[in-house]
């Protein structure tokens, strides 16, 4: 849920706005390393994907449903800095064109749901991937663990901001326990769905999953002549990273 206007006082809102602007600035530079000159179209399309992800409702029980925040999912799929950029773009467009989330709370929303979920999710993902067996099958599991931790940590971040700049004097312990309780449940849902979604992607297009790249073997392109039969003799080094050669590499060549 997006933080609306008036939840946090003006100084805190401005401070989180500065944090968010700095983070987006850094992400702009780093994302170019993850995407090179494809940054604008790819980040834009992935941002549209994240927006769509937040539209897909998952039924929970008794008629209620929830949706994915998508921070950890985006980090594993496209890399952390591109993900920060995409989620920030989503929150800016939602605030300006959809009146969703307060305009003064934009910095807070970007910081908590764009920056904290992505970075925490990705760090936990990296740690889990390092510990788990070095196989493709570990990637969805690590992604799920990242999602599981990222949501309650973002909720704790909100409690921290609330302690500094909250506009009401509700008992902090009450806020903390309520936020943590609810968001641990949300985190479990986020983890299961992230695990399943990354699993389905790793099964068919592992080359598109940023977090799975270390486990992809470089394959040699084998060219069979008419007389070669099945044990092709001529081999060429090709920079394909997955089952299919990536079109982008052809384009930049």
């Amino acid at each position: 849920m997006h933080v609306p206007d008036g939840f946090l006082d003006a100084p805190t809102s401005v401070a989180t706005g500065v944090v968010a602007a700095t983070a987006v600035g850094i992400a702009l530079g780093r994302a170019r390393r993850e995407l090179d000159d494809r940054t604008a179209p790819m980040a834009g399309l992935v941002a549209a994907f994240v927006f769509a992800v937040q539209m897909l409702n998952f039924p929970v029980a008794a008629g209620t449903s929830g949706h994915l925040l998508g921070g950890a999912l985006a980090a594993v799929l496209v890399g952390p800095w591109t993900a920060v950029l995409c989620l920030s773009t989503v929150f800016i467009v939602q605030a300006l064109l959809f009146a969703d989330g307060g305009i003064t709370a934009l910095g807070t929303n970007i910081t908590l749901m764009g920056l904290v979920t992505v970075l925490v999710g990705y760090l936990v993902f990296l740690a889990a991937r390092a510990v788990l067996p070095k196989r493709l099958a570990s990637v969805p599991l690590a992604a799920g663990l990242g999602a599981l931790v990222s949501v309650p940590v973002a909720a704790l971040g909100f409690v921290g901001l609330y302690a500094v700049g909250g506009t009401t004097d509700v008992d902090l312990g009450l806020v903390a326990s309520a936020m943590l309780g609810v968001h641990t449940l949300i985190g479990i849902g986020e983890a299961v769905i992230t695990f399943l979604a990354v699993g389905s992607l790793v099964a068919v297009r592992p080359d598109l999953v940023h977090g799975a790249r270390p486990f992809l073997q470089r394959r040699e392109l084998t060219i069979l002549g008419p007389d070669d039969g099945l044990d092709g003799s001529g081999t060429l080094d090709e920079q394909g990273t997955g089952a299919e050669p990536s079109t982008s590499q052809e384009a930049s060549a």
Binding site: L45, F49, L56, N57, F58, P59, I193, A197, S200, L208
Partner: peptide
């Protein structure tokens, strides 16, 4: 989609949507 037993299908939808969106991005870039 009634309860969490249907989550795997919905999650595969997200996976398929990501592939389509990513490939569309590559085509747009080209």
């Amino acid at each position: 989609a009634r309860d969490p037993r249907q989550w795997p299908v919905l999650a595969r939808t997200l996976g398929a949507l990501f592939i389509r969106t990513y490939e569309r991005g590559e085509r747009v870039h080209l």
